[in-house]
Design a binder for these strands. Sequence first.
DNA 1: GTCTATATCTTGATAGAC
DNA 2: GTCTATCAAGATATAGAC
Lengths: 204, 204
Amino acid sequence: MTIAAKCVVLPKSSMRDYTQLSPAAERIVDVAEALIQHQGFNGFSYEDIAQTVGIRKPSVHHHFATKADLATVVTQRYVQRFISALENLDRSIVEPRKRLLAYAQLFQETYNNNRHLCLCGMLGAESETLPASVREQLKQFFEANLNWLTATLVQARPERAASAQALAMLLLSALEGAMIVGRSRPEADAPAQVAQAFLEQLSV
Amino acid sequence: MTIAAKCVVLPKSSMRDYTQLSPAAERIVDVAEALIQHQGFNGFSYEDIAQTVGIRKPSVHHHFATKADLATVVTQRYVQRFISALENLDRSIVEPRKRLLAYAQLFQETYNNNRHLCLCGMLGAESETLPASVREQLKQFFEANLNWLTATLVQARPERAASAQALAMLLLSALEGAMIVGRSRPEADAPAQVAQAFLEQLSV
DNA sequence: GTCTATATCTTGATAGAC
DNA sequence: GTCTATCAAGATATAGAC
């Protein structure tokens, strides 16, 4: 099969690009992102989006034919932005321990906005009901986070490099979990607190 | 207002008791519990339950008038059973560190069943869309877990009692999060692995 | 306790005018 | 790009017979 033929058979949803959204499409993606983080993919409807954006349901369908299309673009944009944020941390913060604190702050800032979950944490919980295109993005998100955390933990404590992978999974899981557990708790800074406990107790 | 009057105004759903379920009602609760753990409260319908149990939709409504009623009973039973399991651990395992490993195994065993999430982890993510009666149960679940973990961590390391609360939140969050992150990863033992990393690295 | 039948509403989605 | 109108399917829920 030629490369051209391969491109032709790509499903329409895969050709959408979050970097080329019209202003109206971008507003829809913004609202959908917030609704997923607040209520989950199965907890909102096109009608909810239409009312928040201030348009009608068919106008939403004009920009994103199906809910699966919309979720794919929302997730794609979130994952790419998050990966960009990780690259920014590498460029702007030299000390590994401070970089890890800034990383935890990414989760805390998300949570500060009306206790919003990490988009991929919410979708990860619902993943059994999601289209494959979204699940693929989730894999990328978690893998990128684990790779970044592992590398940063090795930099912070080279003598413990052997356990860096396991600690990366521990910290990522703790941050995702803290946003969920924290919703049923009074504290507003659960993600920052678990990260602090992690770094202090492990002397990172 | 008299105590009697207060009882009278209790909504019907609050009077349901998971300890007095008929065999048919219990089968429905079993199936609903599994569906929530697999797909979430907003990811299944009465029709799904009916088909799995092998009855018709109205028969499900006969036992649980509304989806909120059903979710309340499912959650109530799950939380009480989990608290009983914690009491069993206290009775049957003397050494605190082994008790913590057995605790983590509770999550791992849940996860071994088709990557089922902790029921309260899934509902915690969806909590913004849930009835108050379910949210109340979630608070109880997480508080009971944090109290049990804090006490057990103090027993394991009395000299670190001051940080036991923060470490309890770290471990609980990590276990809940590992089930979610793990769904997008190849490993089948994410909960057990994060618990092991926690106990090893913190020398518990 | 279970069923058939039905009501009502919501949801995701389409047709076609402007 | 947005709208009105509409649809088919699915979801929650009820009425009433057996």
